[in-house]
Design a binder for these strands. Structure first.
Lengths: 131, 131
DNA sequence: ATGGGTGCAAATCCTTTGCATCTGC
DNA sequence: GCAGATGCAAAGGATTTGCACCCAT
């Protein structure tokens, strides 16, 4: 599957797979530039879109802009309301199957997935509060 | 509380309170223009930000751009993966208090709120599929 | 007269596009 | 030599900012 990717695309994918942060396109560009100094930002955008389209990565919207994530398994997110930090939740937040189906029914949605977002202050912002 | 708002701000808030759609800043601008033809887009942005900051409205990120919502009660959203439509879920999707707290604990977040997003095809996109 | 709010235009930021060039086959 | 991928620069769209002006106090 991945062997059809060219060297630039592979560098992008590898960078994403090697980080737990949720980089923006610009972050990816800056990181990949180190091994591919001649790559352009437009190419990074093109690669990110095609990787997302082929399902190898996920595009996360709504956390101060668009971010990319190589973890394509369904998972939940924690967002700091103070600094905007975005963390993966390392466990599935359990929800009632029933009310999920009920929500789909009342909205007319043919359910394919869901995500829970939890909001609050992250550890470092709580630290900062104390001082 | 709201009496401290000037007439432009009140027009924006009233428009938002009177719609179930989730308008973008541009939508708000175009709507409010009808009663306030001399208002500028920059002013609409300024008002939206200050209303959001004072908690009178909510700013929703991550649905093909930023949208505004006068419904400040905690609620969940349904998103169409085909057309991007965004709907409020008219009931609370139940989730396990325990796993919510567990998620907060493992991420170090001081929990203040949460949101469930359900994804799938909306009714009209399902219709469209049939033809 | 003073300060905040406003319109307008310019600036910024992020992303996409056009196009000529390069690359691998 | 060709098709697709790329870099670069320009274009686009959304949002923010600078600034002069206006209005209510």
């Amino acid at each position: 599957m991945e062997q059809i990717l060219n060297t630039n695309a592979r560098a992008v994918l590898e960078y994403l797979r090697g980080t737990y942060s949720h980089p923006t396109a610009m972050d990816v560009y800056e990181a990949v530039r180190q091994s591919k100094p001649r790559i352009g930002l437009a190419t990074v955008y093109r690669i990110l879109h095609s990787l997302a389209e082929s399902g190898l990565i996920r595009e996360l919207e709504g956390f101060e802009g668009v971010r990319y994530d190589a973890n394509t398994n369904r998972h939940d997110h924690a967002i700091c309301t103070a600094c905007g930090a975005l963390l993966d939740v390392p466990l599935d937040i359990a929800l009632s199957e029933e009310s999920l189906l009920e929500a789909a029914r009342t909205t007319g949605l043919k359910l394919s997935s869901h995500e829970v977002r939890i909001y609050g202050r992250c550890a470092s912002c709580q630290e900062r509060d104390k001082s």
